[in-house]
Amino acid sequence: MEVGATLLGWTHKAFPMDDPSRVGEARRHAAQAVADMGWGEVDAGRLALVVTELGTNLQRHAQNGRMLLAAMPQSGEFELICIDNGPGIPDLALAMRDGHSTGSTPGTGLGAVRRLANHFDIHSELPHGTVSVARLRAGPPVDTTPGLHVGAIRLPAPHETVCGDGWALATQGTQTTVLMADGLGHGPEAAKASQAATTAFAEAPHGDLRETLQAVHRALQTTRGAAVCALRIDMADHIAGNSTAGNTADSTSDATACGTVSYTGAGNIVGRVLSGVFDKSVITQHGTAGMQIRKPDITSLALPAHALVVLHSDGLETRWSVERIRPLLQRDPTLVAAVLLRDHTRHRDDATVVVIRPKEQP
């Protein structure tokens, strides 16, 4: 992605793997999506095998197994996320050996998925279950988030075909700005509100965060309104190798800070900045963009080394423990998003979670 361009969040479609026929349904959905992206037969065939392998594993061995599929046109990738509620994989190293499978599958086994996918990561915990993410692409890699690892899941409410949440991300120099919007309610009207928010953000994503929030507020006045959070990560200290970020309010020590996180917003978009030794909440003021908001204020805190920044809509519970995701702090952020969705979704609204981790500097 061109530096300064805006990455618009993708939407996942969920396929509960409660019947063998759902594997074929997911495979057909994936095939149509990548055909629209211009993939050739060989790459589409690789994807079909991965969908079949992962879907069959979920259907045969998992409790409440779900596959989430998303086309990511800006990066040219297709993403498959698998989530289940148990029983977990007793010997993950054995399961990952190429050719190992407990049944007859086309691949065969998770080792084949790792071989066929351009990226594959998996985490299993007994008895809570397993989460995995696979990404495939047909061409050379496109870095849409320079300097960052970003994992995100965006799901419509049950029985809805569009998602009332939206998110977008833009990078310029050492700064990355994220906007998340949760349109009131769910369905098409909520989706119009969140789309208006991300469109307004994309027009000027690098300005003062207060001005960004005001611009979004104005853009939403013809919609039903939305909860909104605009958050900026500045990695200038990480790049320069110093630690001036410790001077911000509500910060960690100078010795461990590698950047700053600043945010403003209105409504119930919440999140956390956390590492193995640090945990601070991201909470915005009351109000609804497009209807009524107070004069925006900005809260800043230091970004510790090896930290994650998590933002989510109220489709996830506000209170959650970091313990279940602590082993994943340095893994693919999508695994963190998958665990949070699995363990804390409310199951009655749109649900979006975005997880960001700065890349380690050489």
Rank of each mutant, 00 (worst) to 15 (best):
Glu2Cys: 03
Val3Tyr: 00
Ala5Lys: 13
Thr6Leu: 02
Met17Pro: 11
Pro20His: 09
Gln32Cys: 07
Asp36Lys: 11
Asp43Lys: 12
Glu53His: 02
Leu54Gln: 02
Asn57Glu: 11
Gln63Lys: 08
Gln63Arg: 11
Gln63Tyr: 04
Asn64Ser: 14
Leu68Asp: 10
Leu68Pro: 07
Gln74Ile: 06
Gly76Gln: 09
Gly76Val: 13
Ile89Lys: 01
Pro90Val: 02
Asp91Ile: 07
Leu94Ala: 15
Leu94Thr: 15
Arg97Asp: 05
Ser101Leu: 00
Ser101Tyr: 01
Thr102Leu: 12
Thr105Pro: 02
Leu110Thr: 06
Ala112Gln: 07
Arg115Gln: 15
His119Ala: 13
Asp121Trp: 01
Asp121Pro: 07
His123Trp: 09
Ser124Val: 10
Glu125Met: 11
Leu126Tyr: 00
His128Phe: 12
Val131Gln: 03
Ala138Pro: 08
Gly139Asp: 09
Val142Tyr: 03
Val142His: 10
Thr144Val: 03
Gly151Tyr: 07
Pro156Phe: 05
Val162Tyr: 05
Gln172Phe: 00
Gly173Phe: 03
Gly187Phe: 00
Pro188Met: 08
Ala190Val: 07
Ala193Ile: 05
Ala202Leu: 02
Glu211Pro: 08
Glu211Val: 14
Val216Ala: 05
Arg218Cys: 04
Leu220Glu: 03
Gly225Pro: 04
Gly225Cys: 04
Asp234Lys: 00
Gly241Asp: 09
Ala245Asp: 13
Gly259Pro: 12
Tyr263Lys: 02
Gly265Lys: 13
Gly265Ile: 14
Asn268Ile: 04
Ile269Tyr: 10
Val270His: 13
Val273Pro: 15
Leu274Arg: 14
Leu274Gly: 11
Leu274Trp: 15
Gly276Arg: 08
Ser281Gly: 14
Val282Gln: 10
Val282Thr: 14
Thr284His: 15
His286Leu: 12
Gly287Arg: 08
Gly290Cys: 06
Met291Thr: 13
Pro296Phe: 03
Thr299Ala: 10
Thr299Trp: 00
Leu301Met: 15
Ala302Gln: 07
Leu303Thr: 14
Val309Cys: 15
Leu311Gln: 06
Gly315Arg: 04
Leu316Trp: 06
Thr318Met: 05
Trp320Lys: 00
Trp320Thr: 01
Trp320Arg: 00
Ser321Ile: 00
Arg324Tyr: 01
Arg326Leu: 07
Thr334Tyr: 06
Leu335Gly: 07
Leu335Asn: 10
Ala338Gln: 05
Asp343Asn: 08
Asp350Trp: 12
